[in-house]
Design a binder for these strands. Sequence first.
RNA 1: GGGGAGGUUCCCGAGUGGCCAAAGGGAACAGACUGUAAAUCUGUCGGCGUACGCCUUCGAAGGUUCGAAUCCUUCCCUCCCCA
Length: 386
Amino acid sequence: MTAELRERLKTGRPLRVYLGVDATARNLHIGHFVPLQKLCLFQKLGHHVTFLIGDYTTLIGDPTGRKDERQKITHEEILENAIDFARQAYRLLDPEKTEIRYNGEWLSKLTFMEIVEIAAIFPLKWVVGRRDFRERMERGEPLRFHETLYCLMQGYDAYALKCDVQIGAYDQHLNMLAGRWIQEHFADRPHIIWTLPLLPGTDGRKMSKSFGNTINITDTPDDMYGKCMRIADTMLPSYLDLTTDYESEVVDELKTRLTQHGTNPMDVKKEVAFSLVRQYFDETTARAAADQFRALVQEKEIPEDVPELQVPAELQGRPVPWPDLLVALTHEGKPLAASKGEARRLMAQGGFYVEQEPVRDAAVPYEPGPSVLVRLGKRRYFRIGQ
RNA sequence: GGGGAGGUUCCCGAGUGGCCAAAGGGAACAGACUGUAAAUCUGUCGGCGUACGCCUUCGAAGGUUCGAAUCCUUCCCUCCCCA
């Protein structure tokens, strides 16, 4: 791959690079965006970048690695998701320089004859011999004919876009390879495919919401930074490779440092966290997140901007049992405690503090007066006043 | 059209008449510990109540029963197989 890439770069013209995504609704996490980061890299180096939304392919659903069939999804839903997806992608990409395309543009126009021609390129053995299909068949699980068309569709995208390079996650290898075959068939130069390993979750398992080990695109800067700090030490090399925007020499140096005695992995983690927040937000924000982490988590300081909450009118002017008050007060649309029982539990467990002193007795009420500093758990701070 | 499986508390998933607010795991939350929001350990994890307690919950609606997530009826939904 490297040699091919070098050769094409020699011509001096900007390369056409694309990344295709399926527009399924999902909670996007930074794992999904690893290929996007690399796409971004090409963009910064002056190459032509296309962000392809697979509106048509999503109708089939990528069967890769699936143990079962996909849920069906309507085209309208897909378009909605696509808009959302593109908006998220602009967190990294420069909207001015990014071409957005939908593969329905060309896939919807293919005639049956053309599809037959493309299908004829592929030996059936290759199409259905892949392990995920084979296993599904062996287990007697459903596998339908249309699923085999997915790789033809994605392959055709590469041809239609006249691309030089396609970026994709590791599991897209087969689909990307199909593109090369189709290009060869139509006497185009096959594009270079760059596959990237999957980013593991912060604990080393697969990154997935149900494991709670994701870092989400929509996280606040502080959250994003903080979650990076929970990356398992052993996962740091992966994160350095896949999520940071440091030069490769810097990455190598940090990796080496990790292997040396006396290095505190936490320091490297901070580098990862900083880089990530800077990419999704900006330098200043990243710096602020770093400060916030140091102050709030490491030094357990009281943050500067504690949200001020006002006691609701109907509870003013008299003592109110804390559980009642915590349920009544809201911050960002959510009550501080979901129920009185939860509040009571929190108190009983020693996770509720007034002016930094634990209050365990649920019978102790809030007394009206000057505003008080309240803490729930390790670091949810509020100031409560009338 | 015929046959079969199933819908359980945030998620997965056990539970086939009382001992079930419902096993177990995950997630979440708290505490301890620490280099972190890591790991580990402990505890909590439907609502209301200080509490023996009460209320709501097991796809929906009815019914049987002293008593139902568990039995019956109808309905809705999901999936599989055959055609």
